[in-house]
Design a protein around this nucleic acid. Structure first.
Lengths: 345, 345
DNA sequence: GGTTGAATTGGAAACGTTTCCATACTGCGG
DNA sequence: CCGCAGTATGGAAACGTTTCCAATTCAACC
């Protein structure tokens, strides 16, 4: 009949079971040094009172909150959403909750959120900084003692050793894609990617250039076009690119929005994909898979990134040996219909 | 030079400022009843010691955590991701953190997460239950006293009054879309949407049927095809649908994955969109906007949903008058290139 | 100068746990 | 029968805040 639920405190349970609060705590948690009788009575009392321990109070004493933070520029970005999703799944399995915050790549906001996380005493955090230089914030957090795992960024690191991180081999991916296009005969290829402020862009550019270098062809054909990550910008840039005299015959475009912009620009100019323009998507989004023609894409597993990051963090939280401190995930080129040899002019 | 940061407690500040802890607390929070001298000294001491209050401890005393939960089936689903993003943005403005959890529409997991949220004493929560019947879980939470805002679901409600909720007018949207297709001359139209277990599906079906009813045409042409939300399923179903003798001449398909399945099926069968098959997307995703041909779509603002939900929750948290308790957001049909009159057979 | 009421302050009691410590109890070997 | 080691137990301290309450100061007014 008890309608008023859940005001039950450990003291109530103790009283109901006729033991001390200390015993209740031991019975419910440790199980160590507790007699069968006490265990039984406490369990019964807890059940009857629908006792649910108060995490806040427990946290205060144990200095652990059972929560980890996740800081990304935008959870709605498909390239992050799946990472967050997978990480949450893994963390939940161990009873951890995940608090997420969007930074929009604003360093001030990043610092503010790190401070908030620390002030809330979150046990750890997963972060994808908006630039590699803002490591003061992470350092701050680290001095708070909470482990940090970096998502696909090169953050300088803490004195001696680098931060634990999950990295994606964008360089090799970009090189493979570029090599493939060169192999098809393309000599002028544009790479559309957000700025080199962050690791993924930097690595892609490096791989892109490497492919040109190793093919020993005119590096002038490697058109690097840095982007805001927005469809309209990309469309404008792509239009400009495709109107040039010696326009690129192939485009490598990041994500959903930039890819979309490029595709639109091509359509607006009456270029047919792949006949007039080959296209490779970086990141295998719904759009790439379903577009007609289906877009050849560089794919890496976002789920793996999330899972691996969670795993790395869990290792640190448990303090079980250092284990490995970084993971490098592979990138595959999945061949579809959007690449053919360049038109013969 | 102080390298060891952030062990500073309020007691340290009190000592450094030469006042009592009570005064420090008042100086830092209330500002009420505190002399200029104390305010100055405390501020200075806090600054010098880099004092950051411990939210855990504060929570214990104030019974408020500054965190709200968000429970959806899958944050990586584009239809949720933007909602979460927008809600987080609004909540953050007021200093609240958001913890998210994915339920995969599993009622057991939903209950478990609600329990976890309550146990952590989250101040409130935003939830999109996987079915409308699992309201026991929310009732539990409500008895914990934390306000709940429902995202686009019909949850029976708490005795007298319904839960606060943000709803989308899917019925009207579906009706508009269907009416539009009928107006173009279509008589056999398929609606591909996930089951009627949840409000959006139910409402869409109702609107779909209503359009047929009001047009006074053969309701046999209203082909309702319930779906798992997965591309492969949708593709299979769509193939079956399009192979029928009297195949639909238009398809209304939900989201990214089902839409993608339908588009693929059409392509596999050599049906050209829109010549042989008109298509309307439900939900204006990247895919719909960028596909060639661009897909006419039902659009509602996910950002508005998230913002409105956050706003409703904030109202409840502040306890400022009841305000309105539900919002109904409009759905627009954005016309693109994927709908034309049916082929004349 | 004394009285009064408000403004400020310090001290201590909460908040609900976990964990430490001292005590009581148990069984066992001498 | 007496230590004695180990195990169970109760009581209390601690975690870091906020907030209550009583005490003190202060200014102003008679």
């Amino acid at each position: 009949m008890a309608e008023i639920v859940s005001k039950a405190t450990i003291r109530d349970v103790a009283r109901a079971a006729g033991v001390s609060v200390g015993s209740v705590s031991r019975a419910l948690n440790g199980g160590k040094n507790v007699s069968a009788r006490v265990a039984r009575d406490v369990a019964a009392a807890a059940e009857k009172l629908r006792y649910q321990p108060d995490f806040q109070a427990r946290s205060l004493r144990t200095r652990t909150t059972g929560m980890v933070g996740c800081l990304v520029s935008d959870v709605a970005n498909p390239l992050y959403a799946s990472i967050v999703q997978a990480a949450e799944a893994r963390l939940r399995e161990t009873g951890l909750l995940m608090v997420v915050a969007n930074t929009a790549n604003d360093p001030a906001r990043e610092r503010a959120m790190v401070a908030a996380f620390r002030s809330r005493r979150l046990d750890g955090m997963l972060v994808a900084p908006g630039s590699d230089e803002n490591d003061r914030a992470w350092r701050d957090l680290a001095t708070g003692g909470a482990p940090v795992v970096i998502l696909d960024r090169d953050v300088p690191g803490e004195g001696d050793r680098p931060w634990p991180a999950v990295l994606v081999d964008h360089r090799e991916g970009a090189r493979t894609a570029t090599r493939y296009l060169i192999g098809l005969g393309h000599r002028r290829i544009a790479l559309l990617t957000p700025g080199a402020r962050m690791r993924p862009g930097r690595e892609r550019i490096a791989g892109f250039k490497a492919a040109f270098a190793e093919a020993d062809i005119d590096p002038e054909g490697a058109l690097i076009c840095l982007q805001e990550s927005s469809m309209d910008f990309a469309q404008g840039d792509a239009l400009e690119l495709l109107r040039r005299d010696r326009r690129p015959t192939a485009i490598i475009a990041l994500g959903t929005r930039i890819l979309a912009g490029a595709l639109r620009a091509a359509r607006d100019l009456g270029h047919s994909v792949p006949r007039d323009l080959s296209v490779i998507a970086v990141g295998d989004t719904d759009l790439a898979a379903v577009h007609s023609p289906a877009i050849t894409a560089l794919r890496w597993s976002l789920e793996d990134v999330g899972r691996a990051a969670a795993e790395l963090l869990l290792q640190r939280l448990r303090g079980t040996g250092e284990g490995q401190s970084r993971a490098l995930l592979p990138v595959d080129l999945v061949l579809r219909e959007s690449c053919v040899p360049p038109p013969t002019t």
